[in-house]
Design a protein around this nucleic acid. Structure first.
Lengths: 224, 224
DNA sequence: AAAAATTGTGAGCAATTTGTGAAATAACTG
DNA sequence: CAGTTATTTCACAAATTGCTCACAATTTTT
């Protein structure tokens, strides 16, 4: 039962979406503006967000920008007019789909299902960045067709960052998720592992970027 | 008596399939969604899964992807429309067959039998890695045309790993599946058997790879 | 430019995990 | 039943990995 967060200032529209989403068996939650949405995401995790572009205060774009700093949750945008689609693509914010108002609830539901199916598939067995491939089931990393096996912690660290591409993860967060919640060691241990992970990645070391004062992130950029 | 796992959110459909499968003498189990299916597979082994594509929550694709991380069990997919067949083939998930709704129970049974015959052959016949051949029916292993017979546990261990090529199996998992669920012995027993299995495999000892901190896997890599 | 804060790095030691041989126990075979 | 083969446990050696710390390098702030 996937969970949905519906973000719209128009209460009628929220209700409409919710009614149909309930029928499809989604677990719904509604908020009336962008900052509430960001807050809700910090509290809970959702499988998908339906986000209206036109809202007073933080509009949909701003909200999404904020959300994308901490999450890669799938997003479907509601736009007032088709023309706004250009903006959506322009911002590279990772919008999974958009629906123009007025829309039929059925269409929206169909798109929600489609996005969930797509993104569900994306959590595949392999994660790829250019010629670097991570395969969790065999716990191997392949670089330029050569496989190498990393030490457990390094592999888990890489995997965690790969699963959160472009999102900065603090040392604390990494310790929590990779090392486990009851780990009380030195935070700088992460640095040491990042270091040797970089060594192991060779030319792909630049995948791992230091975000000064915050933590690390993995980001793949085309290079030749 | 082959065992079947039926995965579908629609209870009527599950019952329908089960009724006919029982008649054919299959040992059936039913679950209503993908995550339950994954859980069931961790508990028990089945000979085949009948998996509906369209399900709330984890859909069939997602579920299969997840299953494929730990198992190569044969799968028959139930699709709502013929068009979805493209997706099935496209994703290289190793779907053994598919049946489009609405289907006649007889057709489904025929396909189940066919898949079991096919894959059954694959399983009972031989598994090959280069010049190493494992023959479950005679419980022998041939290396470079010389057959050798392994002790029971070693053979089962090798077979289990061979059936999960490239997938890391933890000691716990191996104990569960090879030794049985009610085995309470020392986990390190696995190591001992791995050791003597390696000795028996001679030059093919490198098929069995230690995945530090996790377990063992069997992986065949071309070398000449 | 200096100070402060943060990150990179190398090295040594600690801890964990695995390999291995041997011995004890169990199961099987003729 | 005796002898053989399998299985399991255990202890210790070997290997690998993880952790901390000190100091260097870098970035930011004052």
């Amino acid at each position: 039962m996937p969970s949905l967060l519906i973000v719209d200032d128009d209460q009628h529209l929220r209700r409409l979406v919710r009614t149909y989403a309930d029928l499809e068996g989604f677990q719904c939650e509604e908020v009336s503006d962008g900052s509430l949405a960001v807050a809700a995401l910090e509290e809970k995790t959702f499988d998908l967000i339906v986000l209206d572009v036109m809202m007073p205060g933080m509009d949909g774009f701003e909200t999404l920008k904020k959300i994308r700093q901490t999450s890669q949750i799938p997003v479907i945008m509601l736009t007032a007019r088709d023309e706004e689609y250009d903006k959506l693509t322009g911002f590279h914010l990772g919008v999974d789909d958009y629906v123009s108002k007025p829309f039929s609830p059925k269409e929206l539901m169909a798109r929600i299902s489609a996005v969930l199916r797509r993104t569900g598939l994306k959590q595949t067995d392999v994660i790829t960045f250019g010629k670097l491939t991570i395969t969790p089931s065999s716990r191997t990393v392949a670089i330029d067709d050569k496989t190498l096996s990393l030490p457990p912690k390094e592999f888990d660290l890489l995997l965690k960052m790969a699963q959160n591409e472009r999102i900065v993860l603090s040392r604390e967060k990494l310790l929590q998720t990779v090392w486990g919640y009851q780990y009380y060691g030195d935070v700088r241990t992460v640095d040491t592992h990042i270091k040797s992970l970089r060594e192991h990645l060779g030319p792909y070391r630049k995948l791992i970027q230091t975000v000064w004062g915050v933590g690390y992130k993995l980001e793949y950029t085309e290079e030749s």
